[in-house]
Amino acid sequence: MDKHRKLSFSEFYVKYGTLFIFIVIFVIAAILNNRFLTVNNITNILRQNTVYAILAFGATFVIILGHINVSYGTVAALAGCVAAMVARNTGSMTLAVLAAVAVGLTAGVINGFFVTKFQVPAFIVTLAMQSMAQGFVFLFTNAKPITGLPDTFKIAGQGTIGFIPVPVIIMILFFGFSWVLLNKTKYGRYVYAVGGNINAAQVSGIRTKNIVRLAFIFDGILTGIAGVILMSRINSGYPSAGEGYEFDAITAVVVGGTSLSGGIGTMTGTFVGALIVGIINNILNLMNVNTYWQYAVRGFIILIAVVADILSKGINKRNN
């Protein structure tokens, strides 16, 4: 049969839509403001991007599985503050990072446990987690910033190697790892299968609960790492620093073409999605748009992205 088949519009949209949107937004941003296309600003975008990009990599697994996590902001803050405390008391950055990862991992284990064991909707489980982590981080810090940190604490968020910011390098490493995990391993294939049809996956011999649990655990570990970078950027443990990050992370994933109904999505899409979110945030700042308006605009964008996803499915069905 015909091997070189033409891409239909919907296939094109699914494959390259995100990239297309990225280019359009990039061009618009460059036209709107002449400070946008400076090396300084682009590095800045990348640096500011890292936290929710890393969160979005984990979120991609969770969302492809048909679940959701809305607890990133407070869990990252908790992990970051724990890291700051450990760094201050021990002076060891290694221990600090390990502590943050342990916090994120614990949150992931708990999320995964309640979602799989009792079939509680992930939205509810992680909403509860959001509130719990919020409580813990304020109790633990007495609602005061943790300061007086060793100089090594700054590296993860503010250091550079050559002219490349360290956080960007960390992000790219985790992107590579997540991409391989999703595309090149059995686990990744199972994630798509479980998200696409959990019953069929089960009768194909996949331990669906373990797949979901592992996704939440990986997601949690990334949250811990993101928490360290977040605090490192301000060189202190700041209990409310994570506010709103779940929103940017989920927006990045959805703008990147991952379907909230599960089974569909790519890591590269998420990466580009994170860049899109980064550019939009950046240009709104450059143009001195009022913060409250920024909230409104970002809300609008996620709505558009979800509508586009639903429409593209509709197009699929009717075939052009």
Binding site: A193, A200, V203
Partner: peptide
């Protein structure tokens, strides 16, 4: 449909 295929793969 329920137990056989992963439709969008």
């Amino acid at each position: 449909r329920t137990y056989g295929i992963i439709p969008r793969r």
